[in-house]
Write a protein that binds this DNA or RNA. Structure first.
Lengths: 104, 104
DNA sequence: TCTATTATTCGATAACATTCGAACTATATA
DNA sequence: TATATAGTTCGAATGTTATCGAATAATAGA
């Protein structure tokens, strides 16, 4: 992976609000081994209605939150797929693995 | 470690030039186990004349490079100590460990 | 097809980042 | 003490990012 891709990833995580969004998705996607699945993640590994949830618990306008989701997607950190009126979000494990490798 | 500290670290690494500087220090500080020490790192773990070296291999003005070193220090990623006319740089292992933990 | 809900796009604005060159400070050495 | 080398600070130009509200588009359901 090129250095410029890494800097893109770090840029996406450099804004505190956006990092917060990333973390909410990240935590909910990581069903601990042997642990219970959370209600938002049937099947584990993805978050239903991530955007709506985020709007509900962050003090930012919808448009700003939409922008932050786009940035996280552009950096390759998450993927989102439409599911009716809302979106289902998933962490891109590859990106996370790349970061881990970066610091080895 | 607070989320805002993480975003500071990621911000420091979000600029490609700065990431480049960080990597040069990082690589030179990490003497592989059983490997030879590099000439810049007698004793291992630190880089002698890091600023001067960086100036020599990056297409940026001294003042800009100085600024980037400051940013890396402010984020707690590296420390620099004067050594005569030049500086000796060291990676802050704690910061790196924090990032690793962040993605566990 | 009408309406409510959900999310995106647009245009504006304010704040912040990157970069430079010039002037300056710190240190070593002749 | 004069000079060379190394690095910092300052002010300015330029570019990028975060944020909002309003207008718009997509979807579900009545």
């Amino acid at each position: 992976m090129k250095l410029s891709n890494y800097s893109k990833i770090f840029k996406a995580l450099s804004n505190e609000q956006r990092l917060n969004i990333f973390m909410m998705v990240y935590k909910q996607c990581c069903v601990p081994k042997g642990g219970k699945e959370s209600s938002c993640c049937p099947g584990g590994g993805s978050v239903r209605g991530a955007f709506t949830k985020t709007c509900g618990c962050m003090d930012l306008s919808k448009s700003t939150i939409s922008h932050h989701f786009k940035e996280l997607q552009n950096a390759g950190l998450i993927t989102c797929e439409r599911e009716g009126q809302t979106f289902r979000c998933r962490i891109n494990e590859e990106a996370v693995d790349s970061i881990k490798k970066f610091f080895e």
